[in-house]
Protein backbone atom coordinates (compact mmCIF):
# COMPACT_ATOMS: atom_id res chain seq x y z
CA UNK A 1 0.00 0.00 0.00
CA UNK A 2 1.39 3.45 -0.86
CA UNK A 3 1.82 5.79 2.10
CA UNK A 4 -0.76 8.54 2.62
CA UNK A 5 1.81 10.94 4.03
CA UNK A 6 5.57 11.19 3.53
CA UNK A 7 7.67 13.77 5.35
CA UNK A 8 11.32 14.10 4.33
CA UNK A 9 14.06 16.28 5.76
CA UNK A 10 11.50 18.75 7.11
CA UNK A 11 13.11 21.84 8.63
CA UNK A 12 11.64 24.99 10.08
CA UNK A 13 13.56 28.04 11.24
CA UNK A 14 11.34 30.92 12.37
CA UNK A 15 12.13 34.51 11.46
CA UNK A 16 13.41 35.19 14.97
CA UNK A 17 16.04 32.49 14.47
CA UNK A 18 14.37 29.76 16.53
CA UNK A 19 14.88 26.35 14.98
CA UNK A 20 11.72 24.34 15.56
CA UNK A 21 12.40 21.34 13.30
CA UNK A 22 15.85 20.16 12.31
CA UNK A 23 15.21 17.56 9.62
CA UNK A 24 12.26 15.29 10.34
CA UNK A 25 11.55 12.13 8.32
CA UNK A 26 8.64 9.73 8.64
CA UNK A 27 6.02 7.93 6.59
CA UNK A 28 2.40 7.27 7.48
CA UNK A 29 0.37 4.40 6.05
CA UNK A 30 -3.40 4.72 5.52
CA UNK A 31 -5.38 3.84 8.63
CA UNK A 32 -2.61 4.51 11.15
CA UNK A 33 -3.46 6.24 14.43
CA UNK A 34 -0.13 7.92 15.03
CA UNK A 35 0.59 9.78 18.27
CA UNK A 36 3.37 12.36 18.39
CA UNK A 37 4.68 12.93 21.89
CA UNK A 38 7.30 15.21 23.34
CA UNK A 39 7.81 18.11 25.75
CA UNK A 40 6.28 21.50 24.96
CA UNK A 41 8.49 23.44 22.59
CA UNK A 42 9.81 20.26 20.98
CA UNK A 43 8.25 21.18 17.63
CA UNK A 44 5.07 19.04 17.62
CA UNK A 45 2.73 21.89 16.67
CA UNK A 46 5.14 23.24 14.06
CA UNK A 47 5.42 19.79 12.51
CA UNK A 48 1.65 19.50 12.20
CA UNK A 49 1.30 23.00 10.76
CA UNK A 50 4.02 22.33 8.19
CA UNK A 51 1.99 19.41 6.86
CA UNK A 52 -0.97 21.65 5.88
CA UNK A 53 1.26 24.74 5.48
CA UNK A 54 -0.34 26.89 8.13
CA UNK A 55 3.39 27.31 8.75
CA UNK A 56 5.68 27.41 5.71
CA UNK A 57 8.55 24.91 6.14
CA UNK A 58 12.10 26.18 5.52
CA UNK A 59 13.26 23.01 3.78
CA UNK A 60 12.19 19.44 3.09
CA UNK A 61 9.37 17.62 1.38
CA UNK A 62 5.79 16.74 2.27
CA UNK A 63 3.80 14.39 0.09
CA UNK A 64 0.13 13.85 0.87
CA UNK A 65 -1.90 11.30 -1.03
CA UNK A 66 0.55 11.45 -3.94
CA UNK A 67 0.66 15.27 -4.17
CA UNK A 68 3.65 17.48 -3.39
CA UNK A 69 2.19 19.78 -0.72
CA UNK A 70 5.04 22.30 -0.68
CA UNK A 71 4.86 22.85 -4.46
CA UNK A 72 1.08 23.44 -4.49
CA UNK A 73 -0.16 26.91 -5.47
CA UNK A 74 -2.90 28.68 -3.48
CA UNK A 75 -5.74 26.93 -5.31
CA UNK A 76 -4.16 23.49 -5.13
CA UNK A 77 -3.37 24.07 -1.45
CA UNK A 78 -7.07 24.71 -0.74
CA UNK A 79 -7.89 21.38 -2.41
CA UNK A 80 -5.25 19.57 -0.33
CA UNK A 81 -6.25 21.24 2.92
CA UNK A 82 -9.90 20.26 2.57
CA UNK A 83 -8.82 16.60 2.68
CA UNK A 84 -6.94 17.16 5.96
CA UNK A 85 -9.23 17.93 8.89
CA UNK A 86 -7.60 19.77 11.78
CA UNK A 87 -8.55 19.69 15.46
CA UNK A 88 -7.07 22.32 17.80
CA UNK A 89 -6.13 22.61 21.45
CA UNK A 90 -8.26 25.74 21.87
CA UNK A 91 -11.08 24.39 19.64
CA UNK A 92 -10.91 27.55 17.46
CA UNK A 93 -14.64 27.77 16.80
CA UNK A 94 -16.21 31.07 15.75
CA UNK A 95 -17.86 31.85 19.11
CA UNK A 96 -20.65 34.14 17.89
CA UNK A 97 -22.16 31.84 15.28
CA UNK A 98 -24.17 28.66 15.73
CA UNK A 99 -22.74 25.19 16.26
CA UNK A 100 -24.21 24.13 12.91
CA UNK A 101 -22.52 27.03 11.10
CA UNK A 102 -19.23 26.08 12.68
CA UNK A 103 -19.60 22.53 11.38
CA UNK A 104 -20.58 23.83 7.94
CA UNK A 105 -17.34 25.87 7.91
CA UNK A 106 -15.68 22.51 7.34
CA UNK A 107 -17.37 22.44 3.93
CA UNK A 108 -15.96 25.80 2.73
CA UNK A 109 -13.10 24.17 0.82
CA UNK A 110 -15.69 22.37 -1.33
CA UNK A 111 -17.76 25.47 -2.02
CA UNK A 112 -17.57 28.20 -4.62
CA UNK A 113 -15.83 31.11 -2.85
CA UNK A 114 -18.80 33.53 -2.90
CA UNK A 115 -21.50 30.93 -2.21
CA UNK A 116 -19.48 29.60 0.72
CA UNK A 117 -18.85 33.08 2.08
CA UNK A 118 -22.53 34.01 2.20
CA UNK A 119 -23.45 30.56 3.51
CA UNK A 120 -25.54 29.17 0.64
CA UNK A 121 -25.01 25.56 1.63
CA UNK A 122 -27.09 22.98 -0.27
CA UNK A 123 -29.79 21.26 1.78
CA UNK A 124 -28.01 17.89 1.66
CA UNK A 125 -24.84 19.45 3.15
CA UNK A 126 -26.85 20.88 6.03
CA UNK A 127 -28.44 17.46 6.59
CA UNK A 128 -25.00 15.83 6.45
CA UNK A 129 -23.73 18.34 9.04
CA UNK A 130 -26.69 17.50 11.30
CA UNK A 131 -25.88 13.77 10.98
CA UNK A 132 -22.28 14.46 11.98
CA UNK A 133 -23.50 16.46 14.99
CA UNK A 134 -25.64 13.46 15.94
CA UNK A 135 -22.53 11.25 15.81
CA UNK A 136 -20.79 13.44 18.37
CA UNK A 137 -23.96 13.65 20.48
CA UNK A 138 -24.74 17.33 19.88
CA UNK A 139 -27.97 17.22 17.82
CA UNK A 140 -29.82 19.27 20.41
CA UNK A 141 -27.12 21.96 20.51
CA UNK A 142 -27.02 22.65 16.75
CA UNK A 143 -28.66 26.08 16.92
CA UNK A 144 -26.91 27.34 20.03
CA UNK A 145 -23.99 29.71 19.76
CA UNK A 146 -20.66 27.92 19.94
CA UNK A 147 -19.63 30.12 22.90
CA UNK A 148 -22.52 28.77 25.01
CA UNK A 149 -21.08 25.23 25.00
CA UNK A 150 -18.72 23.67 27.53
CA UNK A 151 -15.10 22.94 26.61
CA UNK A 152 -15.73 19.27 25.92
CA UNK A 153 -18.78 20.08 23.80
CA UNK A 154 -16.81 22.72 21.87
CA UNK A 155 -14.12 20.17 21.09
CA UNK A 156 -16.82 17.79 19.82
CA UNK A 157 -17.91 20.60 17.47
CA UNK A 158 -14.24 20.87 16.46
CA UNK A 159 -14.24 17.15 15.66
CA UNK A 160 -17.51 17.53 13.74
CA UNK A 161 -16.05 20.42 11.71
CA UNK A 162 -13.00 18.32 10.78
CA UNK A 163 -15.28 15.40 9.93
CA UNK A 164 -17.48 17.58 7.71
CA UNK A 165 -14.45 17.98 5.45
CA UNK A 166 -14.70 14.27 4.63
CA UNK A 167 -10.97 14.09 5.34
CA UNK A 168 -8.49 11.36 4.47
CA UNK A 169 -6.25 12.57 7.27
CA UNK A 170 -6.98 14.21 10.61
CA UNK A 171 -4.36 16.41 12.24
CA UNK A 172 -5.18 16.77 15.94
CA UNK A 173 -2.96 19.29 17.70
CA UNK A 174 -3.10 18.70 21.48
CA UNK A 175 -6.88 18.18 21.33
CA UNK A 176 -7.25 17.41 25.04
CA UNK A 177 -4.66 19.75 26.57
CA UNK A 178 -7.34 22.28 27.64
CA UNK A 179 -9.75 19.70 29.08
CA UNK A 180 -10.20 17.90 32.41
CA UNK A 181 -9.22 14.21 32.65
CA UNK A 182 -12.73 12.78 32.30
CA UNK A 183 -13.59 14.95 29.30
CA UNK A 184 -10.16 14.18 27.81
CA UNK A 185 -10.94 10.47 27.90
CA UNK A 186 -14.27 11.04 26.20
CA UNK A 187 -12.77 13.25 23.47
CA UNK A 188 -10.00 10.69 22.81
CA UNK A 189 -12.70 8.03 22.47
CA UNK A 190 -14.63 10.13 19.95
CA UNK A 191 -11.55 10.85 17.83
CA UNK A 192 -10.35 7.24 17.95
CA UNK A 193 -13.73 5.67 17.25
CA UNK A 194 -14.55 8.00 14.34
CA UNK A 195 -11.15 7.53 12.69
CA UNK A 196 -11.51 3.74 12.99
CA UNK A 197 -15.11 3.66 11.75
CA UNK A 198 -14.45 5.92 8.76
CA UNK A 199 -10.97 4.61 7.97
CA UNK A 200 -9.41 8.06 8.52
CA UNK A 201 -5.67 8.24 9.16
CA UNK A 202 -4.89 10.31 12.24
CA UNK A 203 -1.86 12.22 13.47
CA UNK A 204 -2.36 13.36 17.03
CA UNK A 205 -0.06 15.53 19.14
CA UNK A 206 -0.29 14.50 22.76
CA UNK A 207 1.31 15.68 25.92
CA UNK A 208 0.17 12.70 27.96
CA UNK A 209 2.17 9.53 27.30
CA UNK A 210 -0.55 7.33 28.89
CA UNK A 211 -3.12 8.38 26.29
CA UNK A 212 -0.63 7.83 23.48
CA UNK A 213 0.11 4.29 24.72
CA UNK A 214 -3.57 3.54 25.20
CA UNK A 215 -4.76 4.54 21.71
CA UNK A 216 -1.93 4.87 19.23
CA UNK A 217 -1.02 2.19 16.70
CA UNK A 218 2.37 3.87 16.53
CA UNK A 219 4.18 6.56 18.49
CA UNK A 220 6.74 9.13 17.40
CA UNK A 221 8.77 10.90 20.09
CA UNK A 222 10.12 14.36 19.32
CA UNK A 223 12.70 16.29 21.25
CA UNK A 224 14.25 19.62 20.24
CA UNK A 225 13.11 19.28 16.63
CA UNK A 226 14.43 15.73 16.14
CA UNK A 227 12.63 12.40 16.02
CA UNK A 228 14.13 10.39 18.88
CA UNK A 229 11.66 7.50 18.87
CA UNK A 230 9.49 5.87 16.22
CA UNK A 231 7.82 2.59 17.03
CA UNK A 232 4.93 0.69 18.58
CA UNK A 233 3.48 1.56 21.97
CA UNK A 234 5.02 -1.59 23.54
CA UNK A 235 8.49 -0.47 22.51
CA UNK A 236 8.12 2.80 24.39
CA UNK A 237 9.95 1.86 27.60
CA UNK A 238 10.23 4.13 30.67
CA UNK A 239 13.89 4.64 29.74
CA UNK A 240 12.92 5.99 26.30
CA UNK A 241 10.22 8.20 27.81
CA UNK A 242 12.86 9.55 30.17
CA UNK A 243 15.06 10.27 27.17
CA UNK A 244 12.28 12.12 25.32
CA UNK A 245 11.26 14.30 28.22
CA UNK A 246 14.58 15.02 29.99
Amino acid sequence: MSPILTVQGLKKVYNDGTTALQGVDFTVQPGEFLAIIGPSGAGKSTLMRCINRLVEPSAGKVHFNGADVLKANQRQLRLLRREMGMIFQSFNLIPRVTVLDNVLNGRLGYMNSVKGAIGLFPQQEIEAAMRILARVGLSDQAFKRASELSGGQQQRVGIARALAQNPKLILADEPIASLDPVTSESIMNYIYRICREDGITCLINLHQVEFAKQYATRIIGIRAGHIVFDGAAEQLTPAIIQQIYH
Binding site: N52, L54, R78, L79, L80, R81, R82, M84, G85, M86, F88, S90, N92, L93, I94, P95, R96, V97, D101, N105, G106, L108, G109, Y110, M111, S113, V114, G116, A117, I118, G119, G158, R161, A162, Q165, L171
Partner: peptide, 24 residues
Protein backbone atom coordinates in the same frame (compact mmCIF):
# COMPACT_ATOMS: atom_id res chain seq x y z
CA UNK B 1 -6.48 30.98 15.97
CA UNK B 2 -10.06 31.22 14.71
CA UNK B 3 -8.78 32.25 11.28
CA UNK B 4 -6.19 29.48 11.35
CA UNK B 5 -8.99 26.94 11.73
CA UNK B 6 -10.85 28.28 8.70
CA UNK B 7 -7.70 28.38 6.58
CA UNK B 8 -6.90 24.80 7.59
CA UNK B 9 -10.27 23.65 6.26
CA UNK B 10 -9.43 25.02 2.80
CA UNK B 11 -11.49 28.22 3.04
CA UNK B 12 -10.69 30.99 0.55
CA UNK B 13 -9.70 34.53 1.60
CA UNK B 14 -13.23 35.81 1.04
CA UNK B 15 -14.68 32.93 3.06
CA UNK B 16 -12.25 33.52 5.94
CA UNK B 17 -13.25 37.20 5.99
CA UNK B 18 -17.02 36.77 5.77
CA UNK B 19 -17.45 33.59 7.87
CA UNK B 20 -14.68 34.23 10.40
CA UNK B 21 -13.69 37.87 10.70
CA UNK B 22 -17.06 39.60 10.23
CA UNK B 23 -18.99 37.72 12.96
CA UNK B 24 -16.07 38.18 15.35
Amino acid sequence: RLLEALRASGASWLQVVVRGVVPS
